[in-house]
């Protein structure tokens, strides 16, 4: 995998790397992809996707009490007036 592709993955992952780190990742990735590639040998007829839960078991979609806003905001790096604060996004 080339550095450009690794850089693209970093962008998707919202991660930043130095050039040296990216080069190391490229080495790791060769090995990781060769492990993942073993799956290609599997003889599977259909691409069935399994769900871990039975959808009919889901509870009713009722509005219930959840954590108070103040509690949720306790761990926010910056919060103001019941909201998380981020730099202005729309000019």
């Amino acid at each position: 995998m080339d550095l450009k592709e690794i850089q693209h993955l970093a962008e998707l992952s919202k991660l930043e790397f130095s050039k040296e780190e990216l080069e190391n990742f490229a080495l790791d990735f060769a090995s990781l992809v060769s492990l993942a590639d073993k799956i290609k040998n599997a003889n599977v007829k259909s691409n069935r996707v399994l769900s871990s839960i039975d959808l009919k078991d889901l509870r009713e979609d009722d509005v219930k009490e959840s954590l108070p806003t103040k509690t949720v905001l306790k761990n926010a790096p910056v919060a103001k007036k019941d909201s998380f604060v981020v730099p202005r996004v729309v000019e």
Partner: peptide, 14 residues
């Protein structure tokens, strides 16, 4: 996605 993730889900089924 199909080559890895979906394939892995199929192997999970197997």
């Amino acid at each position: 996605y199909d080559a890895y993730y979906n394939k892995a889900k199929s192997v999970q089924g197997l």
